[in-house]
Amino acid sequence: MKIFRYRDQGNIYLGALVEQGQLYQLKESNVMELVNAARQSGKTAEGYIRSALPQATPISKSIEELHLLTPVDAPEVWAAGVTYQRSREARNYEATEGRLDSTTFYDKVYDAPRPELFMKSTSSRTVGHNDQVCLRSDSTWQVPEAELGLVLDENGVIVGYTVGNDMSCRDIEGENPLYLPQAKIWKRSCSIGPFIRLAETLDDPYSLSIACRIYRDGEKVVDEQANTNQLKRKFNELIHYLKKDNELFAGTVLLTGTCLVPPNQFTLESGDIIEIEIEEIGTLVNVAVYEHELDTKLVN
């Protein structure tokens, strides 16, 4: 079962997509309200929704016709780095100007007990499905990073999974590791959605295929695939360090790192359409533009 948020006639609603494809409007306003109501009733979120479906309002529009929003209004989005071997290789390439035989601090992070965790985004910087992500004006080497996102409650419990796009500037990060915040955080540099797959309905999150496709002028220029079974660190390990001496807010999203990196010679251009698909969760689509072009180039 998948949860989504959408806007209709100026109002924001929470919806459920069931296995048969039917859409229902839920009475709760957000996913954490839904999870808390389910817990108070002694049910899982899935069980709570199924018990409410007979009284729920069916949505007459198709999912493609709805104005989808981020599935959770995440107060914070955090991200993990160098959690896949492919990410380790890419970071080393950036840091050594292509000398892949060199050992860097990224090798140490990959093997260290403590994972790399960093603040990626806030609610106001995060966009959703079919929305525009921004290219940074002072970077010449920019890529999307396809990532599985964990939706957490205030105690670090995983309530669901979503698709994430961690926009990154490879040149800025490679120039100096202290530039990481600038390489990762700017206006519309993060996208999540379009759905949250409820945690109890996903059998094995460590065995999901992930694909990243990029289209330019109607032509597919990037087509990369991987699987979450390549993830080195477990979710509870990442959450453990995120919680340590830290305050979590209900609805926080933790992106678990990327195993898909476009070819080293590739950089995003304005108008590129990015598709990130994670098996059993959904496909997140965004168009990349510069800030001054916002709303002038739309996803078809």
Rank of each mutant, 00 (worst) to 15 (best):
L69T: 04
L69N: 05
L69F: 03
T70K: 10
T70H: 09
T70G: 07
P71I: 01
P71R: 05
P71M: 02
V72K: 03
D73Y: 13
D73P: 09
A74G: 03
P75E: 07
P75H: 05
E76N: 14
E76Q: 07
E76P: 07
V77T: 02
V77L: 05
V77W: 03
W78Q: 05
A79V: 06
A79I: 02
A79Q: 01
G81P: 05
G81V: 00
G81H: 02
G81M: 07
V82Q: 05
Y84R: 02
Y84F: 11
Q85G: 08
R86G: 06
R86A: 14
R86Q: 15
S87L: 00
S87E: 05
E89Y: 01
E89S: 08
E89F: 04
A90F: 03
A90R: 06
R91H: 10
R91L: 12
R91D: 10
N92Y: 05
Y93V: 07
Y93W: 10
Y93T: 07
Y93N: 10
E94C: 06
E94S: 06
A95K: 12
A95V: 07
A95P: 09
T96G: 07
T96E: 08
T96S: 06
E97I: 01
E97S: 13
E97P: 00
E97M: 14
R99T: 08
R99V: 14
L100N: 14
T103L: 13
T104L: 06
T104Y: 03
F105L: 14
Y106P: 08
D107Y: 10
D107R: 11
K108E: 14
K108C: 15
K108D: 13
D111S: 13
D111A: 10
D111K: 11
A112Y: 08
P113T: 15
P113C: 12
P113G: 13
R114H: 11
R114Y: 13
P115R: 06
P115Q: 08
P115A: 00
E116A: 09
L117R: 05
L117H: 08
L117F: 06
L117I: 09
L117W: 01
F118S: 08
F118K: 01
F118A: 04
M119T: 10
M119K: 12
K120T: 00
K120G: 01
T122G: 15
T122C: 13
S123T: 14
S123N: 15
S123R: 15
S124K: 15
R125P: 02
R125G: 09
R125I: 15
R125V: 10
R125E: 11
T126N: 08
T126K: 05
T126E: 05
T126R: 06
V127N: 03
V127G: 03
G128L: 01
H129C: 00
H129V: 02
H129Q: 07
N130Q: 04
D131K: 11
Q132H: 01
V133G: 00
V133C: 03
V133T: 04
C134N: 13
C134H: 14
C134W: 12
C134A: 11
R136N: 15
R136P: 13
R136F: 13
S137T: 14
S137P: 12
S139N: 02
S139C: 07
T140L: 12
W141T: 09
W141K: 06
Q142I: 07
Q142S: 00
V143Y: 06
V143E: 13
V143M: 06
P144F: 04
E145V: 02
E145Q: 00
E145C: 03
E145P: 04
E145N: 05
E145Y: 02
E145W: 04
A146W: 01
A146C: 01
A146V: 05
E147L: 00
E147F: 00
